[in-house]
Amino acid sequence: MSDAIVKIRGTRSGLQLSFAKDADYEAIEKEILQRFESGSSFFVTGTEVFVSKDSLPHEQIEKLKRLFHRRGMRFRTEKHAAAHAKGKEQQQDQRQPAKEAAKEPKPGKDTSTEPQVQQMVVINKTLRGGQEIQTESSVLVCGNVNPGAQIIAGGSIDIRGTCRGMVHAGAYGNSKAFIIADHLMPTQIRIANLIARSPDVVEKTDKAERASIKDGRIVIEPIER
């Protein structure tokens, strides 16, 4: 029942919220707060939340905005930012949290109105144990991902090197996301809401592999590249 008041949909750029037609603001806010409290992995700091401008009266939108801002999330009522970011790769130092760089779409770069847009975070270093990349966009790593490192991406993950860490693609619900690595031997692979772990004895593969969801399971297959 309660799901009907607030609907959350994962998009490439973040979360899209829509509300039941007849729901009053109090109920919506209560519902959202409940989601926060439940520790849902959707609402993490830096997440972009999109609410259509005309789904609620202006002052209620403003209230919601403050609610999300207090939790460190970004709040938008228009789709423009996603369009701006089209085709842009963000060079990114691994010392900065990925989400910081993704936070500022440089305006006026590309104003195409194509709805399917992708952002990518590029990491030009080896990710070492304890380092974490968390972003809503896709991730390209030119280097290895070592055991103990984590990548959590809203989109897909491409590793030009060996992957031994924990990788989570489509972390905000995109089950079409995939993971590619030259040597794919991660401790765990997660795509959308599925988890697969490595066999207890890991062998080094000599071919690039790709993990994706097929028939509700994570499937790994060799690819050429």
């Binding site: 691994q94 010392r95 270093k125 990710l127 070492r128 144990g129 304890g130 380092q131 070592n146 055991p147 103990g148």
Partner: peptide, 13 residues
């Protein structure tokens, strides 16, 4: 080796 990896990351930071 695992700890050395972490340390290299920390040094980079």
């Amino acid at each position: 080796v695992r700890d050395a990896d972490k340390i290299i990351g920390e040094l980079g930071r």
